[in-house]
Amino acid sequence: MAVQRQMTESDSQTPRAQHPLREVLQMFVGNRAAVVASVILLMIVLAAVFGPMLYPTDPFEMVWAPFTPPGTDGFILGTDYLGRDMLSGLLNGGRVSLTIGLVAALMSVFIGISFGALAGFYRGVVEEVLMRITEFFQVLPTLLFSMVIVALFGASLTVVTIAVGIVSWTAVARITRAEFLRIRELEYVTASRAAGASNMVLMTRVILPNALPPIIVQAALMVGSAILFEAGLAFLGLSDPNVVSWGQIIGSNRTYILDAGFTVTIPGLAIFVTVLSISLIGDGLNDALNPKLRRR
């Protein structure tokens, strides 16, 4: 009896309007690794944003004897080969690394979506031209190409960010194009077209929102790879010499890796943990946004 009553009650009730995003959030929260990674990344971001204010030591100033081991003389992470405070370097470098990662990823998402959306929507000649351009960028050796850009235009933060962005948008373009090719054939797009939607509205308001999930996942992963990319350039001395970044700390201390390993391992660990967190978040987003895995 009780069971029966319960059933009729739930039958007569209209299900609450549940936004698709809430479902995604529930799935994401169910993924433990992704949640832990989000917490860690949040702490890293907070440290990079507020750390330099709370710990105002200049990362370029020589404050103590070189190679002071971590934990001695009040230097939590020790000092590097010029006697500069490692903790200050790490906090300030985090700002730069994260900013470059974020801005470069945003840039490649913007270029990639533009190329992919136009190619997938208009097909034909537009698609041919845009995808050939994409392939051209795809086959360029990425590190070499970005080194050429930095060498030509100078090692400023802006140039490095643009260089990283320019070499990594092709994946987004291909994913966006594939999603547009799939979604443009669905009947709700025809319905919107039949109702009088312009091509611009169809692309930006009807197709793009439905194409976003895999693009978001790719964008998240790209923040990680952009950080790695910048670290690589900085390690080679091709980053802005006037700002600290994690890669640059590793690069400048690399000669002393055997004498004072911590000067290299600490920023290395920072890169590792950050990129790993971003990858785990990306994986979590992928599972949460992928409707095939979503339970009904």
């Binding site: 698709p20 009947e187 709700y188 025809t190 319905a191 919107s192 077209r193 039949a194 109702a195 439905n210």
Partner: peptide
């Protein structure tokens, strides 16, 4: 276009899920 409308075959792909 508003003067010609269409009812589609597949009720699953004919509504924008968002």
């Amino acid at each position: 276009r508003q003067r010609v409308q269409i009812i589609f075959q597949d009720p699953y792909s004919s509504l924008n899920p968002r």
